[in-house]
Amino acid sequence: MGWNRKVLRVNLTEGTCKEEPLNMQWADEYLGSRGLATKYLVSEIDPKVDPLSPDNKMIMSTGPLTGTMASTGGRYTVVTKGPLTGAIACSNSGGFFGAEMKFAGWDMIIFEGRSPKPVYLYVENDKAELKDASDLWGKSCWETEESIKHRHQDPLIRVSSIGLAGENQVLFACIVNDLHRAAGRSGVGAVMGSKNLKAVALRGTKGMSGIKDMKAFMKITAEKKKVLADNAVTGQGLPSMAPRC
């Protein structure tokens, strides 16, 4: 399936970004995205950890279909211990951010620790680094996204960020990507804020090459899209109501 077989582990306390192989046994057993990230989370953190402490981890994850033409293939998932309920928090979002993670060559990003100062993660294919975000702190998600694109002189960067709610660790804060897509459930933005992580900016030009038989894949995804098009809700109801943005 469509795996890059690579995980990016970002230690915010030490300011390091390390590559490690994706646990393919877990990928097979837990399919990806929510299931796979949850397996990683429960294996790595103490269940009694304070969600807003440096000992909690936050995982941004994709599934085997993310970054492909399959319907819902744009989605990514944020998994962490949630500050609102104290349970495993899973929040997912559409847009282009998840696909870009795949195009840059990664399947998952694990954030651990807490940065001593506000930072954002910048990933350009294999290269990943933490950059100072002092000037972005206090800015809205839209301003942050615009600033990062301007700074890197690259309008094709995909950004996921927190706004003031996340910075102030509001317990239902979102993480917003591609301007108006949000991982809105369970306060994952507060965890990101507690880690002093303002944004994640991705740029991938490698593409998704892990598909074994592209022709067969394209054929089956086209067929499945017809199921959605023929369905009264997804084919007529939702398109008639959807804002065009």
């Binding site: 033409m69 195009f103 593409g207 592209m214």
Partner: peptide, 15 residues
């Protein structure tokens, strides 16, 4: 995505 697959064999909107 379809354009990049047609020309490069890889799903890669950047191409």
């Amino acid at each position: 995505m379809a354009c990049s697959v047609e020309h490069t064999g890889v799903i890669n909107p950047s191409k």
